[in-house]
Amino acid sequence: MKPTMNVEFCGVEFKNPVLTASGTFGFGREYSSFYDLSELGGICIKGITPKKRIGNPPPRIAETPMGILNSVGLQNPGIDAFISEELPFLKQFDTRVIANISGNTVSEYCEMAEKISDSQVDLIEMNISCPNVKAGGMAFGTSSSMVFDVVSETKKYAKKPLVVKLSPNVTDITEIAVAAENAGASGLSLINTILGMRIDIKTKRPILHQNTGGLSGPAVLPIAIRMVYQVKKAVKIPLIGMGGISCGNDAVEMMLAGASLVSVGTACFSNPMAPIEVRDGIQKYLEDCKRSSVHDLCGGLIEY
């Protein structure tokens, strides 16, 4: 018998635990020519802001050992254009849609949470961890008191489950996680990218125009697993684990550490089929271990 792959997360049913990570998948259109998006557990959209943002000047990407640095700077058409022009496309598919929202101020988060709650998205992911914008973004996500304030205010306007995306660029991620939980977050997603830098030694200039950017890809997988493991012990709300997952076994590790759902991001750049292969890999692992359900994985770590 095939293992069951469906997962309930914050009261929302996902057909399988594999999502696409925000910022790596646009609004889904581009990858819909490679496979039926209904195969995915869910799609987390490119981060949206109250108004259109043009993003950062190029270069916006640099390669690193088993990873990349990016500094896109939240280029997006704005929440209204997303709801009117992109969301109807996504709703054609039988998959969950997670809206990633980013604001410069607490009131912007509240406005967006209110507006997006009235749309057909299934969950809201609150991005308080973008390393590539000057105002808002990571500035909110690196102080427990600010996390508490912005999440508790936004929660008042969110009529859909509110997942808070955590930054790894902090001394102790569990403090931030607990602050978000105490403020009423329905779930947490982690990790956003790790701040990094590369320099072109010929020109002596940073490769990225913004000098620094966010590191992602297989290089960050161990950090993401460690942080999911720590946060799982610190909070009761469910977790979405992400950071460097490129195959089923990586996802299984992330789930054993404590993630209920996993997101695949950078892996799509080298392999457009990566999210589907991750899903199939999880299923194969369950079959090989003769487990009946993907639920058996979450937090199934046997510690020393």
Binding site: T24, F25, Y31, N56, P59, A62, C268
Partner: peptide, 17 residues
């Protein structure tokens, strides 16, 4: 030409003004 990520238009890194 610009440094490129996904090659399909999803990641938005190969920006040109």
């Amino acid at each position: 030409e610009e440094r490129m990520g996904c090659s399909v238009g999803a990641c938005l890194v190969c920006a040109c003004a």
